[in-house]
């Protein structure tokens, strides 16, 4: 029973990270129609920046959220403004834009990854953050993972409030649901899409900060997070923050169960789950 609860709790802790990993990509693909394959690279950059700030300046990783987030936001803003916006203007059809923007994101992936290697090298780095366990009755929590999960859920919640309660947030959602109507209502679609992509990058930055508290970092870690983000989006539905949370927790628990049975097959099981989902819900998989 305890081991079952432990698996469940572990899944929830993992799920927080997965959720925040996915939220950003969910926005970028759901609203701006960019399947940003370089999303994991943004997370990697966020994680390395946190590591740098923490180890060289001694800044608390949690405080890094406030520093790293804006940097990634700016990066995302520039990428969308100078690259994807231009691509959109030069591409004839929305379908062609989806394919081309994915290919361009591959280019971006190579650029960011190689720059990261120039700056941070190829070695594996990391720091330890709250390396102890807390107990609630019989159930053991890794302290850092608990903090990560609470922070992830809190960030998702705030982001959700932003999207549903503020004028800008509502404009973004309008842009995603019906661009033509939104344009008629006086929403500057292009600005909203750029803002939305930048917010996606901001979320990637937050995810990077949180990830760095738990795992060791290397410059090629991004792809795994991109894949996880895509799986969560497929599970939870596109462009929906509660969906990403639910999807993240589902995948976390799924992963926790699989690694309880056969740790070596966890990643394989993720891919299998993902492929089956794609096939079962073929056309409207991302909720379109």
């Amino acid at each position: 029973m305890i081991s079952f609860i432990n698996i469940f709790v572990n899944g929830l802790l993992l799920g927080g990270i997965y959720a925040i990993t996915a939220v950003g990509l969910s926005m970028q693909y759901g609203v701006a129609r960019i399947l940003n394959i370089a999303h994991g690279e943004f997370i990697m950059v966020g994680a390395f920046l946190t590591w740098m700030l923490h180890t060289s300046l001694g800044i608390n990783p949690l405080f890094c959220l406030a520093l790293v987030g804006p940097i990634l936001f700016l990066l995302g803003y520039l990428v969308r403004h100078y690259l994807f916006k231009t691509l959109r203007e030069r591409t004839p059809s929305p379908a062609a834009f989806e394919g081309n923007s994915m290919l361009m994101a591959f280019g971006l992936l190579f650029v960011i990854q190689s720059l990261a290697i120039f700056i941070w090298g190829k070695s594996i780095v990391g720091y330890s953050f709250m390396p102890y366990s807390v107990y609630l009755g019989e159930i053991r929590f890794a302290a850092n993972r608990l903090v990560i999960m609470v922070a992830a859920v809190a960030i998702c919640f705030l982001f959700y409030l932003f999207l549903t309660r503020t004028r800008t947030g509502k404009a973004i959602r309008a842009a995603s649901q019906d661009s033509d109507a939104a344009a008629l209502m006086g929403v500057d679609i292009n600005r909203m899409l750029t803002l939305c992509f930048a917010l996606g990058a901001l979320m990637a930055g937050f995810a990077g900060v949180l990830v760095s508290m738990d795992v060791k970092l290397n410059a090629t870690m991004g792809m795994e997070y991109t894949i996880i983000a895509i799986i969560v989006i497929v599970l939870g539905g596109l462009g929906s923050i509660p969906g990403s949370l639910v999807g993240g927790f589902l995948l976390g628990i799924f992963g926790s169960i699989v690694s309880g049975i056969e740790p070596g097959l966890t990643l394989a099981a993720y891919y299998l789950l993902f492929m089956v989902l794609l096939l079962v819900k073929p056309s409207g998989i991302f909720g379109r």
Partner: peptide, 20 residues
């Protein structure tokens, strides 16, 4: 090796943008 990756990525981005 990483100069190669960098060039590769940059050329890709420029190709998609300007050489459809």
């Amino acid at each position: 090796p990483y100069v190669y990756m960098l060039i590769f990525g940059l050329v890709m981005i420029l190709t998609i943008l300007y050489l459809p």
